[in-house]
């Protein structure tokens, strides 16, 4: 199973600032290993973020994003204590979901 994400969610003024660090190789499929063999593509394809069950981000990303990527969002209308759930699915079907409460 994939390693956990690190999620920070904090109220900054009238919006919640959500920052997510994901643990993922984000392999493009275009690199070769020491032996000259192509390293198979392995990357996150979709990312969703929900706040108290409501989807606020449903996005697709690809191989242009680096290994162990960082994402940041500002969500208006959220408040302290709201539950933030971040999920991703990669091209191999592996997935991961982590949550935190806004503080």
């Amino acid at each position: 199973m994939a390693d956990p994400m690190k999620i920070r969610a904090q109220m900054k003024g009238d919006a919640a600032e959500i920052r997510v660090l994901m643990s993922h190789p984000m392999e493009t499929g275009q690199r070769k290993d020491g032996a000259g063999k192509v390293i198979p593509a392995h990357f996150i394809q979709s990312v969703t973020v929900t706040v108290n069950g409501k989807t606020v981000v449903d996005g697709q990303i690809g191989t242009s994003v680096s290994r162990n990527p960082v994402f940041g969002f500002r969500v208006k209308g959220a408040k302290a204590g709201d539950k933030v759930v971040v999920s991703w699915v990669d091209n191999t079907g592996d997935k991961r979901s982590d949550e935190t409460a806004i503080n």
């Binding site: 409501k54 990527p69 994402f71 959220a78």
Partner: peptide, 28 residues
């Protein structure tokens, strides 16, 4: 870079941070 973002019920979502953060960590 392709971002398909579906806005949910919470109206104003700003993506400030996505592109810079992701690019900042990227190899390029």
């Amino acid at each position: 870079m392709k971002y398909t973002i579906t806005l949910g019920a919470l109206a104003a979502l700003s993506l400030a941070g996505i592109a810079p953060s992701a690019a900042a960590q990227g190899k390029p």
